[in-house]
Amino acid sequence: MKNDIPLFLLNTPSSHPPKRGGGKINISYIDKSIESFAGILKESYIQWESASKTGFFHELDTRIKVVFWLFLIVIISLKKELLPELGIFITVFTLVVLSRINLVKFYKKIFLLGFIFGFLISFPSSLNVITHGEVLFPIITLSKPYDFWGYHIPEVIGFTGEGFSVVAMLTLRVLNSLSISFLILYTTPFPEIIKALKVLKVPDTFLIIISLAYKYIFIFARIVVDMHLAKKNRLVSAVKSAEARNWVAGRIAFIFRKTQLKCDDVFKAMVGRGFSGKIKLYQYQKIMGRDWIVGFFLFTLGLLFLWV
């Protein structure tokens, strides 16, 4: 007897992932995209949740935090010795502890990023091929030194003390910059950070564009996750590569169209609320006495690091 059950439902499902090749592609691109977009949503939620708690840095005026953050970032990039960088690391660590941030989660992320962008990128420079100096750990000995196309390969290739010091310096700089940046982010809501940039004379127009973009990134990211989940739910096997590419391009076009429609809606809403083209963000309240004292202490500490 003929039934109306679609053919794909009658096939025995395979526990193995679809193979590549033959013009077909597995559906990993959907999973990867879901992971990317869900990662943004997750990260913003963690930051928002952490920023809404109470702690030493949470309660500090955002303007003081933002100016201290940028001040310290500049000091970190100016310092050329390991000792002040270590001092900065310990200072930020103390601020993280005082702010009652989960140390394991916080430093897990910092060390991972620091390892990739600080250590891994700079590590090859510890070889005497790049940083000259006394070889502490030889790894290869050639029959003779080589010179070609302006490159010099010494007879003994190995790690130098000077090279290790460069790697340590760059890794510490990256770790310090990330630590202070994430400390601010985990203790301050992002819109507040953007608003506080007003004290640095960043134009209101630019700040409002960043704030609006940030808000809509999450709204559209949610839509994209839903589109991918819906697609994944409808797929039962590998799809043709060209078909998959066409689908992704279609979703990008859909998001583009959606952003354009939203642009019109937002503009109409702005006009409806009396927008005449002039942008003015509201000023903050006055900075409290406690914030001035903490701010003074932090900036003195910063100056100390600058001077050391």
Binding site: Y216, I217, R245, R251, Q260, V266
Partner: peptide, 16 residues
């Protein structure tokens, strides 16, 4: 703002 949001999202799509 919408162009920036779109630019951000376009970077996140995994394309086969």
């Amino acid at each position: 703002a919408m162009a920036a949001a779109f630019s951000f999202l376009i970077m996140m799509f995994n394309v086969p």
